[in-house]
């Protein structure tokens, strides 16, 4: 499809949500303790390296989204839940970090195991 000037306002105002309208059971519930998997794929992932192996708590379930790790490689949407997960700064960065500060990271089902 050719993007023409008259289509621009609609494209800009609509965008393309990565939400997937599929019923997929969540693997975690708010309040669950999780541990991030230690994976090192040579392919695309949206799990930042600094989180590998870290322990956190599910704060919010954002619903079902396409999974970037497969979607980037033409391997399908593999729809799954994405959560806001809380990590303490000390869990991630060690004892020199503030004992009050925290991180919230958006983490997909496939990146975590129950702790």
């Amino acid at each position: 499809m050719l993007l023409t000037p008259d289509m621009v306002p609609t494209v800009v105002a609509t965008g393309a949500s990565a939400r997937v309208d599929a019923h997929v059971a969540p693997r975690f519930r708010v309040g669950d303790r999780i541990r991030v998997r230690n994976h090192n794929p040579t392919t695309h992932t949206r799990l930042p390296g600094y989180l590998r192996g870290k322990r956190g708590t599910i704060e919010q379930d954002y619903g079902v989204f396409a999974f970037p790790d497969t979607h980037a490689h033409g391997l399908g949407e593999k729809p799954q839940h994405c959560y806001s997960v809380r990590f303490t700064a000390r869990e991630v960065w060690g004892p020199a970090a503030s004992d009050r500060d925290t991180l919230r990271v958006d983490v997909f089902d496939d990146y975590m195991d129950p702790d």
């Binding site: 009050r100 500060d101 991180l103 990271v105």
Partner: peptide, 10 residues
């Protein structure tokens, strides 16, 4: 201080 790393589509 609560840092949000926006790793997904939110």
């Amino acid at each position: 201080v609560r840092t949000w790393d926006t790793t997904a589509e939110l």
